[in-house]
Amino acid sequence: MTTEAVGPMTSRARVLAALRREPVDRTPVCNPTSVATVELMDLVDAPFPLANRDPELMARLAATSYTELGFDSIMPVFSIIQESSALGCNMQWEQKDNWPTVRMSEPIWRDADDIRIPNDFLLHPDMVCVLDAIRILKKRFGDEVAIIGKTMGPWTLGYHCFGVEAFLLMSLDDPGKTKLCLDRMKEATLQFGLAQIEAGADALTLPDHATGDLVSGEYYARYLKDLHVEFAERLPVPLILHICGRTIDRMDYIAQTGMAAFHFDSKNAPDESMTVMHDRIALVGNINNPETLFAKGPEVVRQEVLKNLEAGVQLVGPECAIPLQTSIENLLEISQTVREWHGARGRAH
């Protein structure tokens, strides 16, 4: 953390500086996964599932994080399923009040040789939707606000395309084959990431769900660390790695990847996480979703925001994609608390 004076910044400049761990005029408010809610869908008439498949609706709903909630970033990719849809997974697009999801019980691949990234991968309507939404947002907001894209990591694609249980058992039974699969699937991550950068994304979230609720920190080091280093080298914008759940045991590895930031879960204490990261990578997070943002009121939200600010977390926001029934009131409290905290202290961060 620095206390040197910094002039007023645009939201975009603020987010990008924080991702570089450079001085900012105030802590940016950011959710690199999703802030879509039913209330926001109603507000701008952009409901699920259409807002996941129509670029104009996607852009309109995504923009509410900036225009309605006072966040410093816009994330148009609400879910984690666009690539899997393009790869041929069976989808369940759901309704307005539920997330679209991949039918993982109907795997499309069983072996490394089954893995095919289609030649027209980026031309699939669900990919084009994201790319067009980013272009729309870039045109609408220019350099005012940070437009963050999202490309799924190969571990998550493995869950979707092989099925979670089959993929995890393969990782135990045949580490060589698992590494080969990850290496082949990474092409999807890279292609979609590069296409979003070309469309105008300022940064990319890279979810890769090697969560402590499923696999060990050693697993992260064995299977993913090198791939994440490669992504950081080959995708020329700041990358925000997202892994849910307990991750403190792998944060040291994550800090060595060259990623700009790590979006962390409320199961990890902000101060302890900051200590582990030791200024090698920025942190984004980590306000609890189900118990705080969904179930409690603004005062509890405020306390969690303050805990992150006091710990020096570089970008403050929800821990993950928020439940669709979360109230706007609670989400507004995040940016309001951040502004008040900086106002009261009269200092930069």
Partner: peptide, 14 residues
Amino acid sequence: ESFIFVPEVLACAR
């Protein structure tokens, strides 16, 4: 106690 994780548990379940 986090000595093992889900892949190992799945193998035991199998």
